[in-house]
Design a protein around this nucleic acid. Structure first.
Lengths: 188, 188
DNA sequence: GAGCTATATGCAAACTGTTGCATAGCATAG
DNA sequence: CTATGCTATGCAACAGTTTGCATATAGCTC
């Protein structure tokens, strides 16, 4: 299970609580691996039981107490070993492409709207990636080794968004040509 | 569940057996939605029970008998309605990017190998897409409407592969610079 | 004749992920 | 003062996917 390894990866530098990890999985590593808090809390308990993480209760004033987790020596070794194993690429599944196989004059306007939402989303994501890049990865050659790996992942994210946005323009033009002339997407 | 709708989409033009659908999901629609035969046979039975598909037993000589499925009127309507609903994009998950977050001098050579495998795979996939494009989608403007949708999906696949391949070159160069000089990926 | 591949379908268990709900204190906005 | 949202953790049910196994016939190769 890669979720476990993604969590351990997030704990390489910092000792974090489940809640903090959940937030980390909304950004950063979460760009490449999504996880809900339910998944994360469960994985943390499992990993601790396997001896790959150790935990510490941290009482807090004005907030609920929390439990922070850190990698054990065994966890670090397990993570290193995992990286050296083979990884399988989970092929991405996207409803929208299946819908494109159903394109018709009746649904072209709808698909165009969905596409516009994707463009919005990809545009925001791209802007975020670029900000992160400018702030933290402006000179990849001078980064420490591990940070260069993160830079490459970020770069893949950037390229991916750019490609999707460019494709969306072509797709939008083609969809527009399919929509019956008498009405546009927003006509009643 | 989009698998059900992907199956119905595959049955838009043809009446197919579970086995034939399984093969179809290895190519074509399967480029955007993977499914195993166990999933497909189960989905077919479910869909028939819901009245969205109807089946017919086809005895065969020299081969096991088969059951072919076709869309019912209700199935066609259900599919049309589904296309008009909202779709959620399943964020793709990829072990390899998590591994990049763990880049070190010790594992750079291994990651480079994994990357080479991906390049190989993406390259083959791209070549296949291009062949399909050249054969069946050379003039998208003159295609019937639904085929234009499929063309757009194919185009997305092409762009995606191209982007990944270009990124892989950059990544490879950076990884090479991280690998300790005294040994290459294949050194003992 | 033994083993491999292809056709054709299916069950069952295990794993992974999503959704809904629950608790509980504190802060901030209206 | 009430509603909302944040911090912080967790259970339980369901949905979806993967993996391993099972069956049966036919043709091909060694």
């Amino acid at each position: 299970m890669a979720l476990n390894h993604a969590i351990m990866t997030a704990l390489l530098d910092d000792r974090l609580s489940g809640y903090e990890l959940t937030k980390a999985f909304d950004t950063s590593l979460g760009f490449f691996w999504k996880a809900s808090h339910q998944q994360i809390y469960k994985a943390l308990r499992d990993l601790e039981q396997q001896g790959l993480l150790e935990s510490e209760d941290v009482p807090q004033a004005g907030k609920p107490d929390k439990v922070i987790y850190g990698l054990t020596e065994g966890g670090r070794e397990a993570l290193d070993a995992w990286v050296l194993g083979d990884s399988k690429a989970t092929e991405s599944k996207d409803d929208m492409f299946v819908k494109f196989y159903n394109l018709s004059a009746d649904n072209a306007a709808h698909l165009r709207e969905e596409l516009a939402q994707r463009r919005q989303h990809d545009g925001e994501r791209l802007a975020l990636y670029r900000r992160i890049r400018a702030r933290h990865y402006a000179q990849p050659e001078s980064l420490p080794v591990r940070r260069r790996g993160i830079y490459l992942a970020l770069l893949a994210g950037i390229r991916h968004c750019e490609t999707r946005l460019a494709w969306a323009e072509e797709a939008d033009a083609l969809l527009a040509s399919v929509i019956p002339e008498r009405q546009s997407a927003s006509a009643r």
